[in-house]
Design a protein around this nucleic acid. Structure first.
Lengths: 213, 213, 213, 213
DNA sequence: GATGAATGAGATTTCATTCAT
DNA sequence: AATGAATGAAATCTCATTCAT
């Protein structure tokens, strides 16, 4: 059996194990057995547990980013439409590969080297989002560009909301209140949640404490 | 030294260790040493690693919920103001006890018993938030109550955004773009991000794909 | 509370614990708690686990030997009658204090110092038995005294049979085949088992291989 | 080195250790070192201390039962001869493998699962013995079959006597009174001790208190 | 006379990792 | 290319034992 195939089997098994048990609790024994190979072979191909985890993380990062980029590829549509497309792609992907997403989630709290990789991916996606927001601002004849720090905060809020919604949409809790929502429904929920606020912001309108009607 | 004092020392050390290394990687040896006691004493007082972790989680849940409840206690103010107060308390708390928050974050991916405790806390806070949103809807002369599933999704989005913002606000990344933002600033960012959207939703206005200006 | 009373409580608790769990598995914690006192008090009175076990063993040895001696005290009766009396006393005692007997049983396999104490007790009882056998030989006009080694072997066989019967009589297995047998019944069983053989031996008759009818 | 060989080495070392120190006091460290392997290998092959002990017990049970069965295999000889053959085989075995016998002895007081295995073995041997006694009764033109409980008691007495004699024969004490007795001598001692009594019993004769000559 | 507080030492068990073949 | 055999290191947890009061 060719090396590439064997390697993918190992990565598949590793992603499943890391997703279910976490980095520490997943054992190389179990991964090797699940992959249907002997432990020395895993070490021959992937060097160590750390590198194996890194390989998993990189693969899943690539898959996620590719999915989102593919979703926002369509040109000639308005910024909010593109954002919606990207979100839909994101939610579709998280529904499709829950283990991969779980591995990325685990990696964020697994020490510097892993956390950094995921952080870099978040930056990549945030950049994408930020770009869309900026274009939306332009489209809307926005008065001025908000401070970098504010944009950064907004982007983090958006991504955090998306992650939380993805987790909720794929949990059993959501299914209890009817069928699990589709990716499009979830994306719409998030757009509803934030779009008006973002639009206002871009136009320079601000919510301030003590000023509500 | 009296038992209560020692127990608090142990919990402090354990929270720090669990926050930094996670449940599995934090060792009882290190925790005992950090607490300035011997390992057997930790076991005498806290029974096992699992119960120690549980004790940490419960303590931090209590502290977080108390902080947020305290923030929303003030009566006679509008709903958005109360939400803002609660968010400010939340961000102040996360800035004040980053380790405690990290422990709660870890607990969510550490198996059923722990995850359930945190989930229960999230439900408690979501209920609080939902109540405020409902009152806001009333204040705004809202046309109809949105479906339960939609409200649930919105609340998850809000909480996720808050968590993500808290993490970002306390990270070094935020400091790089100027001083770390205050709790009030972060709360304002989040209100700006979502309030208009929520208000629209309550009034029955919806964002729909393909309908943007 | 006077020291003697406290000490007896401790010994009672210790005997029960050692009987149930064995020397190693019985913990000083449990013994102290069962005795209703704190651990340091146990150490104050009984020095160490080893000495505590020794005290238990000595007490139970004393009780057992006293019971058997009491049983054989009656003068002016034939030797077999005295032996039967002694056996009855032995089985009555083992039925009455199963924990004490169990401790002695455990002590036999618990290393030199303890095993020696029990061995000494066995010697004491064996001497008693041997004396009765000798007198029986005289009564029966026995031809000659058997070799010391043979007598020793016989005595061990008798004691072993008695111990095994005691254990069986107090086990649930015996109760399954009707009510548990009384001490007198068990003693009769053992007398039936061996008396004729012993009598023959004393008269010089021997069982030899290949000579059965 | 092949797995089977290593496993036997481990069992040999474990039997020796359990025999000398008992289940609790024997440490896996010592067993591994005595077997000339590392501790993890012991766990890899034997799973746990409990299973290791079980494996020892089962092996020694098998060896002992096989030895006794082999001894009683010879057909066409009288019942007492067969019993003597079986006893000789038993004493030869206990002299040959004192550690194995000691392990079985320990197992009887080491908790339900172990005690049950040994009890089952005792039942097996008791059945064998009971069969021989029954045949002997037939040979002797026995009047009637004694009650089940009485037979059970007699068998227990016989086995207990045999165990006690075996222990004595292999102890230093026996050697002090001349050379240690051979298996045939010990078997003869036991036959002398009980055979006449058993024969009487089979014929319906009973020893009763107060009726001695 | 009695105890709450505390620990050094050692138990079983698991895991990532490497040879020799 | 692939593996059965093997281990060093470290994890969680328990226990007999002693102070200071």
């Amino acid at each position: 059996m060719p090396r590439q195939v064997r390697e993918r089997q190992m990565l598949d098994a590793a992603v499943a194990a890391f997703a279910r048990h976490g980095y520490q609790a997943a054992s190389m024994d179990d991964i090797a057995e699940a992959a249907g190979v002997s432990k020395p072979l895993v070490y021959l191909y992937l060097k160590s547990k750390e590198e194996l985890f890194t390989a998993c993380v990189r693969r899943e990062i690539g898959a996620l980013v590719a999915a989102v980029r593919e979703g926002t590829r369509e040109r000639g549509v308005s910024a909010d439409q593109q954002l919606w497309n990207g979100l839909t792609a994101f939610f579709a992907h998280t529904a499709d590969r829950p283990d991969g997403v779980a591995v990325l989630h685990r990696a964020r709290t697994q020490g510097e080297p892993f956390a950094r990789e995921v952080a870099a991916m978040r930056v990549e996606i945030l950049t994408l989002v930020t770009g869309l927001l900026a274009q939306a601002a332009q489209d809307a004849g926005c008065a001025g560009v908000p401070a970098e720090r504010e944009v950064s905060g907004l982007a983090h809020a958006l991504v955090g909301a998306a992650e939380s919604l993805a987790e909720w949409a794929n949990s059993h809790e959501a299914a209890r209140a009817g069928a699990a929502p589709s990716a499009r429904e979830t994306a719409a929920t998030l757009m509803n949640f934030c779009w008006a606020g973002l639009e206002n912001l871009m136009k320079g309108a601000r919510w301030v404490p003590g000023a509500s009607p």
